[in-house]
Design a protein around this nucleic acid. Structure first.
Lengths: 183, 183
DNA sequence: CAGTCCATGTAAGTAGTTACATGATTGC
DNA sequence: GCAATCATGTAACTACTTACATGGACTG
C-alpha cells in the first residue's frame, strides 16, 4: 500500500524521501502511517522496478538529497491500481477493543483509567483535525494550481472521515465509561 | 497481538486451533482478524514459550484434534499485559481513504461506483452487528456461568463500537457520494 | 552547548498474508 | 458425485516496526 501512496504524492511533484515522510505525516496521517525506514527502502525498490527515478544532489552546506521523480511506468501503475475498485471492507485492528474484550478480570478502576486516557487522546485528535480542516479550507481558496481544486475535494473528504471516526470513538468511550461506572 | 487474543480465549476454556479460529471470526471479527495459518503457528510458538500446553487426540471417525490449555505462566502473561494500559491511539489503515485521496484524475462515475459498492458492504456489516447484538443479549440472559456476566458487558461494549464505526462510515459514504454527485 | 530540524540509510526482527498440502465426514 | 464443514499443518513471501548509525546547520 505504501508504494501507491508514494506514487500518488510523486505524481504531484518530485520529492525526497524526507519530504514524503513529512507529507505523509501531515496529510495522510489520519488514515495511513509509515516509518522513514519503510519509505526509504520502498523508494529504492520502486526505482529498481522502474516506477520512479532518482537523482542525488550533494548539498553544499545543506544535507545531501535524493530526489525521486515518477516515471511514465509509475503513472500507469498508479492509474491501473486506481481503476480496480475495492470490493471489500478494510479490516480493522483495534488494540483497545482487544483489551476491553478480555477485561472481565480487571478492576473497574483499572479499566476506567485506561479509557479516560484514551478519551483525552481522541479528544486531542479531534481538535487536531478541526485545525487541519480550517487550514485546508484556507489553502483551497488560493491554490497554486487550479487543477488541484478537484483533488482538494477528496483530501477534504478523507479528513472528514477521520473526524467522524474520532467523534464516534469519543462518543463510544463516554458511553462505555458511564456503563462501567454504573456496574 | 494475536497471542493475547488466543490466551484470552484459552483463559475461558481449552480449545483447538480450529475452535479458536471460529471463535475469533464470530466474536472478535469486528476488531481483529487472523488466518488459520497464523493461529496454528502462534499456538506452537506459545507452547514452546510455556504459555499454553497441548494434547493431541486421535479422532476415531472424526479428524484428529490438538487441544490447547492455558498454563499458569500463560495466565500471568495475560494479566500482566492487561495491567499495562494503552497510552496511544491505535493507528488506522484505511485503503479506501488512500484511494479516494489520490482520486483527482478519476472520473466521478468510477469513484461513485466504488463508493456505492462500499456502501452496500458497510450496510451489510451494520445488519450483521445488529443480529449479533440481539443474539448476545439473548445469551447474556441465560449464561452457563454467572461469572461471565461481567465479561459479557465488555463483549457488548466492543460490539457497540463496531456498530458505531460502521454507522459513522455509512454516514460519511452517503455524504461523500452526495458531494461528488454535485461536482 | 543542548535540542531540534534536515537528511539518508541499513539490519534485524515481528506480524500478517497467500499459497500449498492433505483427508475424512455430512448433507443435498 | 459435489460442496461444505471439520481439522491441522508448512513454506514463502510481503509488510511493518524497532533499533542502530551518521553528521551538519540552526536556535535559544
Amino acid at each position: 500500500m505504501i508504494q501507491y501512496i508514494l506514487l500518488g504524492f510523486l505524481n504531484y511533484q518530485p520529492m525526497t524521501g524526507y519530504d514524503l515522510k513529512r507529507t505523509l505525516d501531515h496529510s495522510t496521517g489520519h488514515f495511513w502511517h509509515a516509518y522513514h525506514s519503510q519509505i526509504y527502502t520502498t523508494l529504492r525498490q520502486m526505482e529498481k522496478d522502474g516506477l520512479v527515478a532518482s537523482q542525488f544532489v550533494m548539498g553544499e552546506g545543506q544535507p545531501d538529497r535524493r530526489t525521486y521523480t515518477i516515471t511514465e511506468q509509475g503513472r500507469v501503475h498508479l492509474t491501473e491500481w486506481l481503476s480496480h475498485p475495492l470490493t471489500e471492507a478494510t479490516s480493522i485492528k483495534e488494540e483497545l477493543l482487544v483489551r476491553l474484550f478480555f477485561s472481565g478480570q480487571r478492576s473497574n478502576e483499572s479499566i476506567l483509567a485506561e479509557l479516560t486516557v484514551q478519551r483525552e487522546i481522541h479528544q486531542q485528535k479531534i481538535s487536531e483535525y478541526r485545525k487541519m480542516r480550517v487550514e485546508m479550507e484556507e489553502q483551497a481558496k488560493n491554490l497554486p494550481l487550479p487543477s488541484l481544486k478537484r483533488d482538494s475535494v477528496f483530501w477534504m473528504a478523507t479528513l472528514k472521515m477521520g473526524t467522524r471516526y474520532e467523534e464516534a470513538y469519543l462518543e463510544w468511550l463516554n458511553e462505555t465509561i458511564q456503563t462501567i461506572q454504573e456496574l
